[in-house]
Protein backbone atom coordinates (compact mmCIF):
# COMPACT_ATOMS: atom_id res chain seq x y z
CA UNK A 1 0.00 0.00 0.00
CA UNK A 2 1.18 3.50 -0.75
CA UNK A 3 2.20 5.06 2.56
CA UNK A 4 2.69 8.80 2.23
CA UNK A 5 5.35 10.51 4.34
CA UNK A 6 4.10 13.40 6.40
CA UNK A 7 6.57 16.07 7.46
CA UNK A 8 6.23 17.20 11.09
CA UNK A 9 8.45 20.26 11.61
CA UNK A 10 9.88 20.74 15.09
CA UNK A 11 10.96 24.15 16.34
CA UNK A 12 12.43 24.89 19.76
CA UNK A 13 9.50 24.48 22.15
CA UNK A 14 7.42 22.18 19.96
CA UNK A 15 6.11 19.39 22.15
CA UNK A 16 3.16 17.50 20.70
CA UNK A 17 5.17 16.11 17.81
CA UNK A 18 5.29 12.62 19.36
CA UNK A 19 1.53 12.35 19.58
CA UNK A 20 1.11 13.81 16.10
CA UNK A 21 3.51 11.20 14.77
CA UNK A 22 1.62 8.46 16.57
CA UNK A 23 -1.68 9.64 15.06
CA UNK A 24 -0.18 9.72 11.55
CA UNK A 25 1.18 6.21 12.01
CA UNK A 26 -2.16 4.87 13.22
CA UNK A 27 -3.80 6.55 10.24
CA UNK A 28 -1.48 4.75 7.82
CA UNK A 29 1.08 7.45 7.09
CA UNK A 30 4.80 7.67 7.77
CA UNK A 31 5.65 10.57 10.07
CA UNK A 32 8.97 12.37 9.61
CA UNK A 33 9.81 14.69 12.49
CA UNK A 34 12.42 17.24 11.41
CA UNK A 35 13.94 20.16 13.26
CA UNK A 36 13.69 23.58 11.63
CA UNK A 37 17.50 23.56 11.49
CA UNK A 38 17.40 20.45 9.31
CA UNK A 39 14.88 22.11 7.02
CA UNK A 40 17.04 25.22 6.86
CA UNK A 41 20.15 23.28 6.02
CA UNK A 42 18.29 21.38 3.34
CA UNK A 43 19.00 17.95 4.83
CA UNK A 44 15.23 17.52 5.02
CA UNK A 45 13.01 19.25 2.46
CA UNK A 46 9.39 20.28 2.43
CA UNK A 47 9.15 19.22 -1.20
CA UNK A 48 10.00 15.59 -0.45
CA UNK A 49 6.89 15.00 1.61
CA UNK A 50 3.30 14.44 0.67
CA UNK A 51 1.90 16.67 3.40
CA UNK A 52 2.89 18.84 6.35
CA UNK A 53 1.60 18.63 9.91
CA UNK A 54 2.52 21.56 12.16
CA UNK A 55 2.20 20.16 15.70
CA UNK A 56 1.31 21.72 19.03
CA UNK A 57 3.60 23.13 21.67
CA UNK A 58 5.13 26.44 22.57
CA UNK A 59 7.45 27.30 19.70
CA UNK A 60 9.98 29.77 21.09
CA UNK A 61 8.08 29.83 24.36
CA UNK A 62 5.25 31.93 22.90
CA UNK A 63 7.54 34.94 23.19
CA UNK A 64 6.05 37.92 21.34
CA UNK A 65 2.72 36.10 20.93
CA UNK A 66 1.92 32.43 20.35
CA UNK A 67 3.19 31.14 17.02
CA UNK A 68 4.45 34.52 15.89
CA UNK A 69 8.16 33.74 15.91
CA UNK A 70 7.81 30.48 13.99
CA UNK A 71 5.43 32.16 11.56
CA UNK A 72 8.11 34.74 10.89
CA UNK A 73 10.67 32.00 10.31
CA UNK A 74 8.40 30.24 7.86
CA UNK A 75 7.84 33.47 5.97
CA UNK A 76 11.47 34.56 5.89
CA UNK A 77 13.19 31.20 5.41
CA UNK A 78 10.64 29.06 3.60
CA UNK A 79 8.53 31.50 1.57
CA UNK A 80 9.12 29.61 -1.70
CA UNK A 81 8.37 26.21 -0.20
CA UNK A 82 5.17 27.49 1.36
CA UNK A 83 3.85 29.08 -1.80
CA UNK A 84 4.70 25.89 -3.66
CA UNK A 85 2.74 23.86 -1.11
CA UNK A 86 -0.20 26.23 -1.27
CA UNK A 87 -0.29 26.30 -5.07
CA UNK A 88 -0.05 22.53 -5.50
CA UNK A 89 -2.77 21.98 -2.93
CA UNK A 90 -0.78 19.52 -0.83
CA UNK A 91 -2.57 19.05 2.50
CA UNK A 92 -1.34 20.99 5.51
CA UNK A 93 -2.70 20.51 9.01
CA UNK A 94 -1.84 22.81 11.91
CA UNK A 95 -2.80 21.83 15.44
CA UNK A 96 -2.86 24.30 18.34
CA UNK A 97 0.51 26.06 18.12
CA UNK A 98 0.71 24.85 14.51
CA UNK A 99 -2.66 26.51 13.85
CA UNK A 100 -1.43 29.70 15.51
CA UNK A 101 1.63 29.61 13.25
CA UNK A 102 -0.49 29.18 10.11
CA UNK A 103 -2.77 32.06 11.10
CA UNK A 104 0.09 34.37 12.11
CA UNK A 105 1.92 33.52 8.90
CA UNK A 106 -1.12 34.62 6.93
CA UNK A 107 -1.72 31.14 5.48
CA UNK A 108 -5.02 30.71 7.27
CA UNK A 109 -7.55 31.65 6.22
CA UNK A 110 -5.28 33.27 3.59
CA UNK A 111 -4.46 34.28 1.01
CA UNK A 112 -1.28 35.94 2.22
CA UNK A 113 -2.31 39.54 2.50
CA UNK A 114 -1.58 42.57 4.62
CA UNK A 115 -2.92 43.31 7.05
CA UNK A 116 -4.35 40.08 8.43
CA UNK A 117 -8.06 40.20 9.21
CA UNK A 118 -8.20 37.06 11.41
CA UNK A 119 -6.18 36.19 14.47
CA UNK A 120 -5.84 33.89 17.46
CA UNK A 121 -5.50 35.77 20.70
CA UNK A 122 -5.78 35.39 24.47
CA UNK A 123 -8.62 33.24 25.75
CA UNK A 124 -11.53 35.29 26.98
CA UNK A 125 -10.75 34.28 30.56
CA UNK A 126 -7.16 35.40 30.18
CA UNK A 127 -5.53 32.15 31.13
CA UNK A 128 -4.26 28.84 29.84
CA UNK A 129 -6.84 26.10 30.13
CA UNK A 130 -6.90 22.34 29.65
CA UNK A 131 -10.18 20.43 29.30
CA UNK A 132 -11.98 18.08 26.94
CA UNK A 133 -14.30 19.61 24.37
CA UNK A 134 -16.63 18.37 21.67
CA UNK A 135 -16.18 19.68 18.16
CA UNK A 136 -17.58 18.97 14.76
CA UNK A 137 -16.06 19.07 11.32
CA UNK A 138 -18.27 21.84 10.00
CA UNK A 139 -20.79 20.53 7.47
CA UNK A 140 -20.41 23.71 5.43
CA UNK A 141 -16.63 23.51 5.18
CA UNK A 142 -15.25 23.66 1.64
CA UNK A 143 -12.04 21.72 2.33
CA UNK A 144 -11.79 18.83 -0.11
CA UNK A 145 -9.86 16.54 2.15
CA UNK A 146 -12.14 17.21 5.10
CA UNK A 147 -15.18 16.22 3.02
CA UNK A 148 -14.57 12.59 3.95
CA UNK A 149 -15.25 13.47 7.58
CA UNK A 150 -17.74 16.30 7.11
CA UNK A 151 -20.12 16.49 10.09
CA UNK A 152 -17.99 14.12 12.16
CA UNK A 153 -18.01 14.79 15.88
CA UNK A 154 -14.70 14.54 17.74
CA UNK A 155 -14.04 14.68 21.48
CA UNK A 156 -10.54 15.69 22.44
CA UNK A 157 -8.72 18.02 24.81
CA UNK A 158 -7.78 21.63 24.39
CA UNK A 159 -4.68 22.97 26.11
CA UNK A 160 -4.00 26.58 25.23
CA UNK A 161 -3.89 30.16 26.46
CA UNK A 162 -4.24 31.95 23.13
CA UNK A 163 -6.94 30.11 21.25
CA UNK A 164 -9.67 32.68 20.76
CA UNK A 165 -10.45 33.35 17.13
CA UNK A 166 -11.05 37.04 16.56
CA UNK A 167 -11.82 38.88 13.35
CA UNK A 168 -11.33 42.48 12.25
CA UNK A 169 -14.93 43.08 11.19
CA UNK A 170 -18.28 41.58 10.22
CA UNK A 171 -17.28 41.25 6.57
CA UNK A 172 -14.34 39.07 7.53
CA UNK A 173 -16.59 36.89 9.65
CA UNK A 174 -19.03 36.57 6.77
CA UNK A 175 -16.14 35.51 4.53
CA UNK A 176 -15.14 32.83 7.06
CA UNK A 177 -18.70 31.58 7.26
CA UNK A 178 -18.62 31.10 3.50
CA UNK A 179 -17.01 27.67 3.79
CA UNK A 180 -13.78 28.52 5.64
CA UNK A 181 -14.94 27.36 9.07
CA UNK A 182 -13.49 23.86 9.39
CA UNK A 183 -14.39 23.01 13.01
CA UNK A 184 -16.86 24.32 15.54
CA UNK A 185 -17.23 23.73 19.28
CA UNK A 186 -20.44 21.92 20.14
CA UNK A 187 -22.58 22.25 23.23
CA UNK A 188 -22.29 19.58 25.88
CA UNK A 189 -25.75 18.22 25.23
CA UNK A 190 -25.04 17.57 21.56
CA UNK A 191 -26.54 14.34 20.22
CA UNK A 192 -24.69 14.06 16.94
CA UNK A 193 -25.87 10.57 16.11
CA UNK A 194 -29.40 11.83 16.05
CA UNK A 195 -28.42 14.59 13.71
CA UNK A 196 -28.94 17.29 16.28
CA UNK A 197 -25.46 18.60 16.90
CA UNK A 198 -25.79 21.93 18.59
CA UNK A 199 -23.26 24.71 18.52
CA UNK A 200 -21.83 25.82 21.86
CA UNK A 201 -23.41 29.26 21.33
CA UNK A 202 -20.45 31.00 22.89
CA UNK A 203 -21.04 29.32 26.23
CA UNK A 204 -18.11 28.53 28.49
CA UNK A 205 -16.74 25.91 28.86
CA UNK A 206 -18.18 24.23 25.75
CA UNK A 207 -16.65 27.07 23.78
CA UNK A 208 -13.60 27.22 26.01
CA UNK A 209 -11.92 30.40 24.80
CA UNK A 210 -14.63 32.75 23.56
CA UNK A 211 -13.95 32.22 19.86
CA UNK A 212 -16.34 34.08 17.59
CA UNK A 213 -19.18 31.87 16.27
CA UNK A 214 -17.72 28.90 18.23
CA UNK A 215 -15.05 28.51 15.57
CA UNK A 216 -12.45 25.93 16.58
CA UNK A 217 -10.62 25.66 13.26
CA UNK A 218 -10.33 27.12 9.77
CA UNK A 219 -9.30 26.18 6.26
CA UNK A 220 -7.95 28.26 3.40
CA UNK A 221 -9.83 29.06 0.23
CA UNK A 222 -8.53 26.04 -1.67
CA UNK A 223 -9.35 23.93 1.35
CA UNK A 224 -5.91 22.29 1.41
CA UNK A 225 -4.60 24.04 4.51
CA UNK A 226 -6.52 23.31 7.71
CA UNK A 227 -5.89 24.32 11.29
CA UNK A 228 -7.58 23.85 14.66
CA UNK A 229 -6.93 24.63 18.32
CA UNK A 230 -8.06 21.34 19.97
CA UNK A 231 -5.89 18.22 19.99
CA UNK A 232 -7.47 15.34 18.05
CA UNK A 233 -4.05 13.62 18.17
CA UNK A 234 -4.59 13.10 21.91
CA UNK A 235 -7.65 10.97 21.21
CA UNK A 236 -6.73 8.29 18.70
CA UNK A 237 -6.89 5.28 21.05
CA UNK A 238 -9.98 4.19 22.96
CA UNK A 239 -8.30 4.27 26.38
CA UNK A 240 -7.33 7.91 25.99
CA UNK A 241 -10.99 8.89 26.31
CA UNK A 242 -12.33 9.90 29.73
CA UNK A 243 -15.89 8.92 30.60
CA UNK A 244 -18.46 9.86 28.02
CA UNK A 245 -19.91 8.51 24.82
CA UNK A 246 -18.08 5.73 22.99
CA UNK A 247 -16.14 6.61 19.89
CA UNK A 248 -15.80 10.22 18.75
CA UNK A 249 -12.08 9.67 18.33
CA UNK A 250 -9.87 12.02 16.35
CA UNK A 251 -8.40 9.23 14.26
CA UNK A 252 -10.87 9.73 11.40
CA UNK A 253 -9.46 13.20 10.87
CA UNK A 254 -5.91 11.86 10.51
CA UNK A 255 -7.13 9.10 8.20
CA UNK A 256 -8.69 11.72 5.96
CA UNK A 257 -5.46 13.74 6.09
CA UNK A 258 -3.29 10.76 5.19
CA UNK A 259 -5.75 9.63 2.51
CA UNK A 260 -5.59 13.06 0.89
CA UNK A 261 -1.78 12.83 0.97
CA UNK A 262 -1.63 9.64 -1.08
Amino acid sequence: MNQPTILIPHASGTNRDHEAAQAIELAGGIPVVAHINELRSGSVRFGDHAAVLLPGGFSYGDALGAGGRLALELRTWFADELSEIASTGRPVLGICNGFQVLVKAGLLPGPLSEPRRVTLTENERGRFECRWVTLQVDPGCRSGWLSRVKGTVIRCPIAHGEGRIAVADAATLAALEDGLVAFRYLSDGARPYRGAAEAAAGQYPMNPNGSVNDIAGLCNEQGSIVGLMPHPEDHVLAWQRPSGPEGQSGLALFEAFVEASR
Partner: peptide
Amino acid sequence: VRRYDHEVRGGTV
Protein backbone atom coordinates in the same frame (compact mmCIF):
# COMPACT_ATOMS: atom_id res chain seq x y z
CA VAL B 1 -5.63 22.15 37.87
CA ARG B 2 -7.03 23.28 34.53
CA ARG B 3 -4.20 25.76 34.18
CA TYR B 4 -1.90 22.79 33.79
CA ASP B 5 -1.88 20.69 30.67
CA HIS B 6 -2.68 17.19 31.94
CA GLU B 7 -3.16 15.67 28.49
CA VAL B 8 0.06 16.35 26.59
CA ARG B 9 1.97 13.21 25.55
CA GLY B 10 -1.40 11.51 25.12
CA GLY B 11 -0.78 9.03 27.93
CA THR B 12 -3.19 10.18 30.64
CA VAL B 13 -5.57 7.37 31.57
